[in-house]
């Protein structure tokens, strides 16, 4: 079991125990995660590194409730998400998790504003309440002047910042980032990492990030290495 205490005096936010995840591929059983246990404190900034196929993204998907483990349990902020049904899990995700993907995954026919507004459509907020939240999120990522731009009118770095705004707009408990700098040039990647760092430091967000990029991983407080579905090494840096 790895205890990834990202923040000083942190309180445990995620508790994963004996996670196994296997897939059936043809006649073969693929064990992607094997007996993985992990604790993550609130306010932590974790980077998962490891070779392709080591189970990083699978772990992130399990922790974010996008997938369910073959066995084992995960609780986030006291919610046992592995015991939840599909629809409960969706509702939980809407409330507690923000996702940032490598390819940004913005909806091309919606403006930056409308993309960021998407998670808020699921809330009881009215139009003006949503506007307030969206503007705040876009300001936080430094794009208040791009809210009416479509994704095709933005650079890769700007698109990713819009995606981060979408991830944080509903004020989730947890931010999960899968290769957030994987498709960006160095400068944009630095900007994005700087932004994620600020979200942790200034806004107390908990971020779990999968990355192949050592420079991106350096920004995290803790780096965990996965190999063949198990955590093999934990690195810790000062906040």
């Amino acid at each position: 079991m790895v205890n990834a205490n990202g923040a000083p005096n942190g309180k445990c936010l995620i508790r994963a125990r004996n996670l196994d995840k296997s897939y059936q591929r043809g006649g073969e059983q693929l064990h992607v995660l094997q007996g993985l246990s992990l604790d993550v404190d609130r306010g932590g900034f974790l980077a998962f590194m490891g070779p392709s196929g080591s189970g990083k993204t699978t772990l992130l998907n399990l922790l974010g409730g996008l997938d369910v483990p073959t066995s084992g349990s995960i609780s986030v902020a006291g919610d046992e998400i592995t015991a939840m049904g599909r629809s409960q899990l969706t509702a939980w995700r809407a409330r507690h998790v923000g996702f940032v993907f490598q390819m940004y995954n913005l909806i091309p026919v919606l403006t930056a504003y409308q993309n960021v507004e998407l998670p808020l459509l699921l809330t009881s907020l009215g139009r003006s309440g949503r506007r307030e939240h969206v503007e705040t999120a876009l300001e936080l990522v430094g794009l208040p002047d791009r809210m009416n731009h479509y994704p095709r009118q933005l650079s890769g770095g700007q698109e990713q910042r819009v995606a981060i705004a979408r991830a944080i707009v509903a004020d989730p408990t947890l931010l999960l980032c899968d290769e957030p700098t994987g498709d960006l040039d160095r400068r944009s990647a630095d900007e994005v990492m700087q932004l994620l760092g600020r979200l942790v430091d200034e806004h107390g967000k908990t971020i779990l990030m999968v990355t192949h990029d050592p420079r991106a991983a350096e920004r995290a407080r803790t780096t965990l290495h996965l190999e063949k579905g198990t955590l093999v090494e934990a690195g810790r840096r000062a906040a």
């Binding site: 599909r86 969706t90 995700r93 809407a94 390819m103 995954n105 909806i107 998670p119 699921l122």
Partner: peptide, 14 residues
């Protein structure tokens, strides 16, 4: 991909 994103951010199946 877009439908997956909608579901990721919390849109229910229904």
């Amino acid at each position: 991909g877009e439908i997956a994103v909608l579901k990721a951010v919390g849109f229910r199946d229904g």
